[in-house]
Amino acid sequence: MNSCTKLRGCVMTRPFSTPHVAPLYKALPYQYLGVRKISAYCRCDPDALRAFLPDEFELLGDVCEVFQLEAPDAGPLGHYSESGVVIPMTFDGTPGAHVALEYVSSDDSLAAGREIWGYPKKMAEVPFRSLENGGFESSTIRRGTTIISMKFTPGGDAFEKPVMQPRFQIKTFATADGTGWDLYQVIRNDLANVEVRDHQFGTVELELKGSDDDPLDRLGVESVIGAESTLIDFLLQGGRILKSLDAA
């Protein structure tokens, strides 16, 4: 295994990702500029949320975040949009949040997210647009079905948000013969150099439609306690391997 990476200030002698002659995504870090994100914070049935967490994580509270975002400049990943569900949790006593479902509009972002940090990304269309009233609307369309719809209007009340950073993910890869797993790791990912350029509380119209492949209907949403829109810059770096678990 080649241990030389650009993060350590040296030149790699092997490609960072496949295909070998033209890697799908480049080495870290990735500088994100002008990311617009709309979020709905939903009170849910705790038992429903718990079912979305890997066994290694403990649920923290009963509020999850449903988000949609547009990243117009993600460095070498270019322009893409994304959505997902984030659940507050703890690992070994440390609070953070787990991205339980995630949808993305580009193949390089999908592959990098899954292969580096273990984010559960799936391909989808995630159109995102500004509204004349200063709000935003976005939807997530997967295999021809709209599974998330959000319309954010500025001007809502402030509310208390759960802890949503750092992210804790499970990174796992199946063996080539399909009989088990090559690895099963707990990964921690922290954003760096975060700059909030705009923040607004607001109200949101939220619709979720689930299926066996995308079980958004099983979140047990009881109410929306608040919504926000943010515009941020940040640096996305490598994660930390906290624990390598038995993959057998």
Rank of each mutant, 00 (worst) to 15 (best):
A174V: 13
I187W: 02
M123W: 11
A176H: 10
D55E: 10
H79Y: 12
R197S: 12
M150Q: 12
P120I: 00
Y103G: 09
S149W: 07
I116K: 12
G155Y: 08
S139G: 09
A112P: 06
D233F: 02
P72L: 12
T203G: 15
S105F: 02
D212F: 05
I187Q: 10
L206G: 10
P95H: 03
E137K: 07
D214T: 05
D62Y: 03
K151I: 10
V99H: 01
T146D: 00
M164Y: 09
P95K: 05
G134L: 09
Q237W: 14
L49H: 02
G78Y: 09
L131C: 13
T145A: 02
G239C: 12
D73I: 07
Q200F: 08
G113V: 14
M164H: 11
Y30D: 11
E125N: 14
S83D: 12
K161I: 09
S138M: 00
P76M: 01
F91S: 03
F173H: 08
A176G: 08
Y119P: 04
L7V: 15
S211M: 05
G135C: 13
T153L: 08
V99M: 08
T13N: 14
F91H: 12
G118Q: 06
P215Q: 11
T146E: 13
F52L: 02
T179W: 13
T140F: 05
D213T: 02
R43L: 06
V85L: 04
V224N: 15
D190G: 03
L231Q: 02
A112T: 08
Y80I: 06
M89W: 00
D47K: 07
L28S: 04
P29L: 08
I116C: 13
A176Y: 10
Y25R: 06
P46L: 03
P76T: 05
F128Q: 09
P120M: 11
S229F: 15
A192S: 01
M1K: 13
L191C: 04
S229I: 03
I141P: 06
V126A: 11
G178S: 06
Y80W: 07
A48L: 05
L183I: 14
P127Q: 01
T146N: 09
N189I: 14
E56P: 01
H20Y: 15
F136M: 09
G113E: 15
K37E: 06
L110K: 09
Q31Y: 15
S130H: 10
N189L: 12
D233C: 00
S211C: 02
C42K: 05
G34H: 01
D212I: 15
R14Q: 14
S39C: 14
N2A: 03
L59R: 01
L7R: 07
L216I: 02
L216C: 00
E65F: 07
V126Y: 02
F152E: 04
S109A: 15
L69T: 03
G9S: 12
L101F: 05
I38R: 01
G144A: 08
K161F: 11
Y103F: 13
F57T: 06
Y41V: 13
L33Q: 14
K161L: 14
G75T: 03
V196Y: 00
K171L: 03
F128R: 13
L242A: 01
S149Q: 09
P15M: 08
R129C: 11
C44V: 00
A100R: 03
D108I: 05
L33D: 10
G75H: 08
P15E: 06
R14D: 12
M150P: 08
A124V: 00
G178K: 10
R129N: 14
M12L: 09
V224W: 13
